[in-house]
Amino acid sequence: MTVKTERVATARCLRVEGREIALDPEGYLVDLSDWTPAVAEAMAGEEGRVLTPEHWEVIDVLRDFYARFEMAPAMRALVKAVGQALGPEKGRSLHLMKLFPESPAKVGARLAGLPKPTNCL
């Protein structure tokens, strides 16, 4: 997998499997339909992050939440959704902070190919 970042006007592009994937200035997908697991891996790789099976569990919960509610969850809703889907041990802020230390809701949504959660700064 070749990963290449280029500046284009106000957005940047990520090259994944021969395709140009447009990102906004904060690193979120411009076109949500561009998301694939390979895109998530490339985005994570740019940040020096390796996605483990635990990351993928949370990404799956995020994508399911978005499919049901048409919005990316803020932190409180994310904790609740993860707890319901994966059990109380994984549905804790501490667990999510270990996986996405910067901001589980924002980073998780970005890697899941979702828009930035509305209640996150």
Rank of each mutant, 00 (worst) to 15 (best):
D24P: 03
T10P: 12
I59A: 02
G91M: 04
V39E: 10
V107H: 00
K4W: 09
K80S: 15
K98C: 07
T36C: 05
C120P: 00
K106E: 15
T2V: 14
E26W: 13
V58E: 02
G45K: 12
E20K: 14
P25E: 08
P53N: 13
M71I: 10
K106V: 15
L111P: 01
D34Q: 11
W56D: 02
P104G: 05
G113P: 03
G91W: 00
A72D: 01
P101I: 05
L29A: 04
N119S: 14
T2R: 15
D64E: 15
V8N: 08
E57G: 07
K116M: 12
T10G: 13
G113Q: 07
R68Q: 12
R92N: 09
A81R: 06
I21W: 06
M97N: 13
D24Y: 04
P88H: 12
P73W: 01
L96Q: 02
T36Q: 09
L114P: 02
V3L: 13
P53I: 06
A72Q: 00
P115I: 13
R76N: 14
K80A: 15
E20V: 10
V30P: 03
S93N: 14
T5N: 08
H55G: 06
A67P: 01
P73Y: 01
E89F: 07
A112F: 00
E102W: 07
A81W: 01
T52F: 05
V39S: 09
E41N: 11
A85W: 01
K106I: 15
A81I: 05
H95I: 01
Q84W: 09
G91E: 00
A38K: 11
L94Y: 11
P25N: 00
D60A: 15
H95Y: 14
V3Q: 09
E41T: 11
A11N: 10
P101Q: 03
G45S: 12
W35K: 07
A44F: 06
R76L: 14
W56K: 07
H55Q: 08
Y66M: 01
G45E: 12
P25K: 03
R49G: 01
W56N: 03
A22W: 09
I59Y: 00
T52A: 07
P117Q: 07
A42S: 10
A42K: 04
T36M: 11
R92L: 10
E47D: 10
A85D: 06
K90P: 00
N119C: 06
G27Q: 02
C120Y: 04
V16A: 05
R12I: 03
Y28C: 09
L32K: 09
T52C: 08
T10L: 14
T118Q: 13
H95V: 03
P37T: 03
T10F: 13
A22R: 08
A38L: 12
L62T: 05
P115R: 10
M43E: 10
K116D: 01
G108I: 04
